[in-house]
Design a binder for these strands. Sequence first.
DNA 1: TATGCACCCTGTAGCAACTACAGGGTCAAG
DNA 2: CTTGACCCTGTAGTTGCTACAGGGTGCATA
Lengths: 136, 136
Amino acid sequence: MKIGELSRATGTNIETIRYYERIGLLPAPDRTAANYRSYGDAHRSRLSFVRHSRDLGFTIEEIRSLLDLSDDPARDCGEADRIATAHLEQVQAKIAQLTLLRDELARIVGRCRGGVAADCRVIEALGDHRHCESPH
Amino acid sequence: MKIGELSRATGTNIETIRYYERIGLLPAPDRTAANYRSYGDAHRSRLSFVRHSRDLGFTIEEIRSLLDLSDDPARDCGEADRIATAHLEQVQAKIAQLTLLRDELARIVGRCRGGVAADCRVIEALGDHRHCESPH
DNA sequence: TATGCACCCTGTAGCAACTACAGGGTCAAG
DNA sequence: CTTGACCCTGTAGTTGCTACAGGGTGCATA
């Protein structure tokens, strides 16, 4: 299939597919006589893997490691689990941080009583960290 | 005060302070005879405002709007509230998205039973979106 | 007086993970 | 034979910094 089809099949931007090839995440496919990229099923499933992992928030480097693992079926699976577990912990940390931030923002937003900027509680709260209840 | 003092006073990297000046977020300060930047209290509180807003996740452009507002004390405060509210909604959306993602990751991680990559449930789950329970 | 060191300056390039052109080639339909 | 959809390469832009390179300044110490 040509790049446009692969793009539609995987929901990936054409430019992104070429980008992945450039950085070595996808192997360079064969070319047609007209120098068009020609992909097979292996490419499509590899790209699906990449996109799905990206959707789950893995970085390109993490995905590279995961792909290396799956390219070498004899290797120990524990490494994949370590990568995924570390990533899960990062996501949990991010959620915790955003939750603090949300609470702080909600407090700030709730203070607006209208009026002019000079008396604005929102602007005041943003300017002075001491109005905060939690660290962020 | 010189840039190093301002940096320590606000917990901001020196390069970041110069960056904020370059993009017009901080006004260019006076210079000493040796061409060193010389800051006053107004600069420090403006920079604190910027840092605090960044810590709360506001973008540079949002901060620019908030600063414009606070520079013009007669303006309606509602605009600041709108910016903060919109930002709060984005944070909430992000938390919701990350929570789905965390649940999915937790499911995937939990499937590892050791063994070799060829049988790896983690890699399998990453390759195939159909293993997922929720959209992301 | 020399020299070492901390500090300051400008300008440019790098990071992640794309995205968006500019400027061209290819191919099938009408 | 031209229109339009597709493809190609290469480069530059995005956000919010951070990290140099290559220089100047200012003060204390030997």
